[in-house]
């Protein structure tokens, strides 16, 4: 299966990168290992195991590749895109406002029937979150440019 081979290659590259970075940290020797010693060998084992996986791919991998089902891939793409936008805007919008928008978005994406319903569920939820975590447990969530 192609995706299995790609995954193995990615791990080979990861292993090599780890080995290079570890060598920069100083390996010293087995009698007095340096900070890079253990990660270097972990990287080496990763490369060896990845080659083994490349040569004998797992036959139990799910038959369908990522890119075969666009409908499924579409919803996953939108979820991750939403999370990325959430992270980027978190400092600017503040936790409560940004998370409210994220919640509305996720509820709609998860099959919530209308934006109105998503909003009606999200607002009380965020109020409860504010009371429990913001006021009772006093967790200092970031406030955005609006001070919310």
């Amino acid at each position: 299966m192609l995706q299995d081979r790609i995954a193995s290659l990615v791990f080979v590259v990861l292993g090599i990168v780890v080995m290079i970075e570890s060598a920069r940290l100083s390996l010293d020797n087995i009698h007095n290992p340096g900070p890079g010693f253990v990660p270097f060998f972990l990287g080496l084992f990763m490369v060896i195991l990845s080659f083994l996986s490349l040569m004998a791919p797992d036959k139990k991998v799910r038959a369908e590749a990522f890119w075969n089902n666009w409908q499924r891939g579409k919803s996953t793409f939108f979820i991750f895109a939403g999370m990325l936008v959430y992270l980027v805007l978190l400092k600017m919008m503040g936790f409560y406002l940004d998370t409210l928008c994220c919640l509305i978005y996720l509820i709609k994406l998860s099959g919530g029937r209308s934006f109105k319903r998503s909003i009606l569920i999200s607002i009380p939820t965020m109020i409860v979150i504010y009371i429990i975590f913001g006021r009772l447990l006093i967790i200092p969530f970031p406030r955005g440019i609006l001070g919310i």
């Binding site: 253990v38 990660p39 972990l42 990287g43 990763m46 195991l49 990845s50 996986s53 797992d58 139990k60």
Partner: peptide, 19 residues
């Protein structure tokens, strides 16, 4: 339950994250 090679690769990945 799956491939032993893959399980060991995951163990090594965990060890790398720990480092």
């Amino acid at each position: 339950s799956g491939s032993m090679v893959k399980a060991l690769m995951m163990a090594i990945l965990g060890l790398l994250f720990a480092s």
